[in-house]
Every structure is written in structure tokens, then in C-alpha cells.
Computed example of a mutant assay.
Amino acid sequence: MNMRYLMTTKGGSEADEKLFAEMGAFVEEMTKAGILLATGGLEPRGLVMTSEGDDITVTDGPFLEAKDVVGGFALVEVRSKEEALEVARRFRKIVGDGESQIWQVFG
């Protein structure tokens, strides 16, 4: 049974032609293999929604340091956690130093 994982990324190399070419090839490979379900970039500042009882508040933000901004995501479907980690390792090798977070998606 396949499992889905949501991967987010912070940091990485400055975008240049080499990075775009390597990432394009990686995305194409993952798509052809049926692993990559969705991918995309995220705006640096979204919205924050908080709730307390019946009160819901929406504010601009979060306001983070540049190194803490989540820059993008990928949703993958793989056979195991180990396979998800290997996909994330390959991604990090392309984009360089930074952080990726990986969550299993249920449902």
C-alpha cells in the first residue's frame, strides 16, 4: 500500500540555470515514475488564522526571518517512509543547504 508524504523546504541555493535544469529533470523523473502528485512554490508571507471559541481572527504573516520561510512543497506517493526520505535526500542534494520537513499524509 502506498503512502503519501508532504515535504516542505526552507533555504537552498540561489536559483540559476543549472538549478532550474537539475530540478526540471528531477520533477520530470518523479512525475513519470508516478511518485510526484503535486509541487509548488509558496509566497513568503501568507495569512495566519487563529480561533478562540467563536472568534476567528485572520492576520497577515507569519513574519519570519528569510531562513525560516517555507519556500515550496511537494506531495509524493511512495511505498515507504524510507522511499520518501530518499526522494527528500535527492531534492536536498539539488537545492543545497537548508531544511526539509516531511510529514505522512493520512486520509
Rank of each mutant, 00 (worst) to 15 (best):
L64W: 05
V78E: 01
L47N: 03
E43T: 10
K67G: 15
Y5L: 06
E99V: 11
T59P: 10
I94F: 02
E82H: 11
L42T: 03
L47S: 06
S13E: 09
V87H: 08
E17V: 14
F91S: 05
A74S: 13
R90W: 00
Q104N: 04
G71P: 02
V48W: 11
T57R: 10
G98F: 07
E29W: 04
V69W: 02
L64G: 09
K67M: 14
A84D: 02
I94A: 04
F26S: 11
A84E: 02
S80L: 02
G71M: 02
E65H: 03
L19T: 01
S80D: 01
D55M: 14
R79Y: 01
S100P: 06
Q101T: 15
T57S: 12
V87P: 04
G98A: 06
V105G: 10
M30W: 06
M23R: 03
V105K: 12
D60H: 13
E28A: 15
G41I: 05
D60W: 09
A15P: 00
P44N: 01
E28I: 14
E43D: 05
T9K: 13
G53E: 13
G24K: 01
R79E: 03
T57V: 15
A25M: 05
R90V: 05
M30K: 13
P44T: 02
R89P: 02
L36V: 07
M49I: 15
D54G: 10
A33N: 00
L6M: 15
E77K: 15
G24W: 00
G71W: 02
E65C: 01
G61D: 04
F26K: 12
D68T: 04
E14S: 13
R90Q: 05
D68S: 08
M1L: 10
K93Q: 11
M3N: 03
K32C: 09
V70R: 09
T57H: 12
T31S: 13
S100M: 15
G46D: 01
E77N: 14
A15I: 05
P44I: 03
M1P: 07
I102E: 04
F20T: 06
F20Q: 08
Q101G: 14
G40Y: 00
R45N: 05
S100C: 15
E86W: 10
V78K: 06
W103P: 06
K32L: 12
T39Y: 00
M30H: 08
T9G: 09
E17M: 12
E22C: 13
G72E: 01
R79A: 07
M1F: 06
A74P: 03
R45Y: 00
G46V: 03
S100T: 15
S100D: 12
G34V: 08
A74I: 09
G96W: 03
E52L: 14
D16E: 07
P62F: 02
Q104V: 09
S51E: 08
L37C: 09
G98T: 07
L37P: 04
V58C: 12
V78L: 07
K81L: 14
L42H: 01
